[in-house]
């Protein structure tokens, strides 16, 4: 726990007077995939946006590699190797696929030549993009856009990857590709925090998970424990 790559302690945040997160603590280690589960409105996106620095925390602390980064803005956290792929993917629809990929390397301040190498590697890993580099990102299908978001993450090579509902609204074959990518990130040693409504799917890839309800963690455990938990089965997996 001391060497957790991402550690969130008693985090509180919200919008104006509306407090959404009421003290959330969690952690993700290197080479670990952690699922963040919960129904719509449980506070998953708020937690991820606060962790990424887009929303200011009202209380609590945030650590990256054991260093306190509480209150740092998103652009600084990105430079420290934390990447959030937000709901809606955070692409730039008016820009080309290629420029979107190049922006993935912005936080790393790569020289032009190295950036070109990283972009080429990402395009090779996600061949669906290779023939579409000069197209507007907004012209891609939903699945292709999600692949672009993942390919951009490939260029960014983050130490902590935070994915907000990456499989929502996608056709099954794309969902499959998303989870293959998540496994790759684990093998590469990144810390992956994965918010999902689709619990069954998320728990097949995750090592551990947290269940968020009304802005609080109500349950945590290994993927197997969560899958076996009667409360989870009843509430989320449609089991009896």
């Amino acid at each position: 726990m001391g060497d957790a790559r991402l550690k969130v302690v008693n985090l509180q945040a919200g919008y104006g007077k509306l407090q959404v997160l009421k003290g959330v603590s969690c952690h993700v280690g290197a080479g670990e995939v952690v699922a963040l589960l919960g129904a719509n409105g449980a506070g998953k996106s708020t937690l991820l946006r606060t962790v990424a620095g887009l929303l200011p925390a009202v209380g609590g602390r945030l650590f990256l590699d054991g260093n306190e980064v509480t209150g740092r803005p998103a652009e600084q956290l990105a430079a420290l190797g934390l990447l959030l792929v937000p709901e809606g993917r955070g692409l730039f629809p008016e820009m080309t696929v290629l420029d979107n990929l190049r922006l993935g390397g912005h936080a790393r301040r790569l020289p032009a030549r190295e950036l070109a190498v990283c972009v080429a590697a990402a395009a090779a890993r996600y061949p669906v993009l290779a023939g579409r580099l000069t197209e507007r990102a907004g012209n891609l299908s939903g699945g292709q856009q999600q692949m672009l978001a993942l390919a951009r993450a490939h260029v960014a090579a983050p130490r902590v990857l935070v994915l907000d509902e990456p499989s929502t609204g996608l056709a099954p074959q794309w969902v499959h590709d998303v989870f293959i990518a998540v496994r790759e990130w684990r093998e590469r040693g990144a810390a992956v925090l994965l918010a999902e409504q689709n619990m069954a799917q998320a728990l097949t890839v995750a090592d551990r998970g947290y269940v968020l309800e009304n802005g609080q963690i109500v349950l945590e455990g290994t993927a197997a424990e969560l899958l076996a938990s009667p409360a989870v089965r009843k509430a989320y997996l449609g089991g009896e």
Partner: peptide
């Protein structure tokens, strides 16, 4: 705008400031 990192960062900021910050672009 097309071929420099600064130009791309400005375009990104114009398109979606939050998404630009997530890419490490300082507004």
């Amino acid at each position: 705008f097309r071929c420099t990192a600064t130009g791309r960062a400005m375009q990104a900021c114009a398109g979606d400031p939050d998404a630009a910050r997530l890419c490490g672009i300082r507004p």
